[in-house]
Design a protein around this nucleic acid. Sequence first.
DNA 1: GACGTATTATACCGTTCGGTATATTCCGAC
DNA 2: GTCGGAATATACCGAACGGTATAATACGTC
Lengths: 188, 188
Amino acid sequence: MNNRMRLLNCALDLFSARGYDAVGVQEIVDSAGLTKPTLYHYFGSKVGLLETLLSERFGELYTKLRSEADYRGDVPLTLHRVAAVYFRFAERNPTYYRMQLSMWFAPPQSESLKSVTRLNEKQQELLEHLFICAAKDHGNMKGRHKAYAATFLGMINTYIALALNGYVVLDEALTHRAVHQFMHGIFS
Amino acid sequence: MNNRMRLLNCALDLFSARGYDAVGVQEIVDSAGLTKPTLYHYFGSKVGLLETLLSERFGELYTKLRSEADYRGDVPLTLHRVAAVYFRFAERNPTYYRMQLSMWFAPPQSESLKSVTRLNEKQQELLEHLFICAAKDHGNMKGRHKAYAATFLGMINTYIALALNGYVVLDEALTHRAVHQFMHGIFS
DNA sequence: GACGTATTATACCGTTCGGTATATTCCGAC
DNA sequence: GTCGGAATATACCGAACGGTATAATACGTC
């Protein structure tokens, strides 16, 4: 493992545990056994390090999402696949998802929120597109794609947060129940 | 308005907008038109200021919750009243609730999380007690009170977060739909 | 072996951090 | 009036902050 990766991993652990603002650059390089110029050589700044971390890890999730989110007439099936991608990713990257979650709910003008806004927008767009396609088959969904996308993502993130704290398990049964519950909320 | 209150209000605005860690003591006293010794006279420390802020505002919510959360045989009715208390409180105290939300999702070892943990525990206990009582009438709810409480609170907070970002409106219809959706998730 | 580039460390920059010692002002009690 | 305590300001503390100038090292290329 090279020093660049070492820095990314150490930063992820620290940001996830205590938050971007509370962790200093010195602490990151100390825990990686390196010094500050190395960090600034690779990432340019503290926020540059954060953005690299976010985009590299998020890219993996986003690629999977795009391949699973193609709507072909069956809304619950598509949502089930999307939810499953999120849940599996969160299970395999709990530390990263914890950080992304805390930034998802971060204060509106915080430094770290600016960095995740693009990621959130990409997720939102992807889901909105899904619901727009679905609305062509289900007229009563028309015009609500923004709210649907935000609500669905909110529900996904809530279940992941519950799972990270040990309240639920992200298994197949929960995936099914979550989608079922969401669909029921729409059509009632 | 006295200086103590002025400090609390300014701190709330800043913490809510940019987060506890990102806001310095100097900035708080500057925006209140005061100096640091005044802040340390009233609150002892930065975290003391935060805890005063949290407990004073949260106490208001908690009092209302306790009076509305007494289960008398009708689960959906009780949950509806509880949800309504949350929604009304969040609507009337959007700045405060934004701060509480960001801390609810804060990294596990962050300074600010320690301060809100007690509040979260009190909410969790109150809801657990409700579901334990309800399980006496509905056998199939037995033993799941922890998960139910956490899920319900998660759902409430998710809807409030959506509302704070303009995706939904916390009206009577949403309250009803949220409770209906939650009940459907339990009994299916 | 000499050169160029990428990588890394030493040592330091000015600023801000949370917090405080000391002194002053204000104001009610007597 | 004067005394005492609460409230507030001036000025400062050492430490940590994010960031950098400079130089040394390591390494593949020729």
